[in-house]
């Protein structure tokens, strides 16, 4: 990166370090922090949407929809989330390829032959001729869907509880005014549930942050991947030889996560305090008594 970095073997001390920390692979390492933030930014709203759908489904009057909602919300209760992270991407990938196999291939051969999953070249996802970045995007999309499904189930739990916590009298009053079920949901239920949902959702956000290193298991080149790659011992055949430094790389990653959770905690505490102002809850009452508002 710097002009004096052209021959690393003659450098030492700080100059060596500054060159070492700005190599191309280190830039990829720094970019992977962005990948984590991107995943958080994309997953959080989608998971919230899934959660809202799940919570609404488990309140539904139509029995099959309600059953589906109940199964979805209780899915994460007994099974470790990591099982889903391993299962959902492969299952989704194979499901999509199977569908394309039915539509695009003219062979009648079954997709499962012994221990292999075989589809014709036209049905492959992504196509083997497609460039590298398409594969990356596809893997990332599958990861986002896996995260959204799992955290959607968590969020559905939280939102379902919050919807139940909205005082019944409020909804009945709205019904007495002649509002339809839809109007009650949109005008009364949803605006009021947030104050009840926020502690759970903020907890969920922390959980989501702490689940992002699992991207590594899905084969994404994330911070864990790069920390292992860069930290491993480099022999003198490399431009920047060094012993096993993985410990220091993981320490850096650890500090990154501690910072993330620390900042989130501060911000969410503020938001919760804002939202509970004037609410008929314990927190709101405490604020009123203390004369904050």
């Amino acid at each position: 990166m710097f002009s004096f970095c052209s021959d690393p073997s003659v450098l030492d001390g700080l100059a060596w370090l500054s060159c070492y920390l700005t190599t191309g692979t280190h830039m990829l390492f720094y970019a992977s922090f962005g990948v984590v933030l991107l995943l958080l930014a994309i997953t959080a709203p989608i998971a919230l949407l899934f959660g809202y759908g799940g919570a609404m489904a488990s309140r539904s009057r139509i029995a099959p929809v309600r059953w589906f909602g109940k199964v979805y919300t209780s899915m994460v209760r007994g099974v470790p989330d990591i099982v889903f992270f391993l299962f959902v991407p492969i299952a989704l990938d194979q499901g999509l390829e199977w569908l394309r196999h039915q539509a695009l291939c003219d062979s009648d051969a079954p997709v499962r032959q012994g221990n292999d999953f075989v589809v014709c070249a036209a049905a492959k996802l992504p196509l083997s001729t497609s460039p590298e970045w398409v594969h990356d995007i596809y893997a990332m999309t599958l990861a986002v869907i896996a995260f959204s499904v799992v955290f959607g189930a968590f969020a559905a739990n939280v939102l379902y509880g919050a919807m139940q916590a909205v005082p019944r009298a409020q909804l009945e009053t709205a019904e007495a005014y002649g509002m339809t079920q839809r109007q009650v949901t949109r005008r009364i239920l949803v605006p009021q549930m947030w104050t009840y949902a926020l502690p759970g959702l903020s907890n969920l956000w922390m959980i989501l942050i702490k689940a992002t290193p699992l991207l590594f298991l899905l084969g994404i080149e994330d911070i864990v991947y790069w920390a292992r790659e860069l930290g491993g011992a480099k022999t003198s055949s490399f431009a920047y030889p060094h012993p096993d430094w993985r410990l220091y790389y993981f320490l850096a990653v650890l500090v990154f996560y501690l910072l993330m959770t620390w900042v989130s905690e501060r911000v969410l505490d503020r938001v919760i305090r804002r939202l509970s102002a004037g609410q008929a809850t314990m927190a709101g009452e405490a604020q009123r008594k203390a004369g904050v508002v």
Binding site: I209, R228, F250, L258
Partner: peptide, 19 residues
């Protein structure tokens, strides 16, 4: 408490193993 609650268990495992 902050150290262990604030960081992912996954990273804690990696770090502990390397250490």
């Amino acid at each position: 408490i902050f150290l262990f609650r604030g960081s992912p268990l996954f990273i804690q495992f990696f770090l502990a193993y390397e250490a």
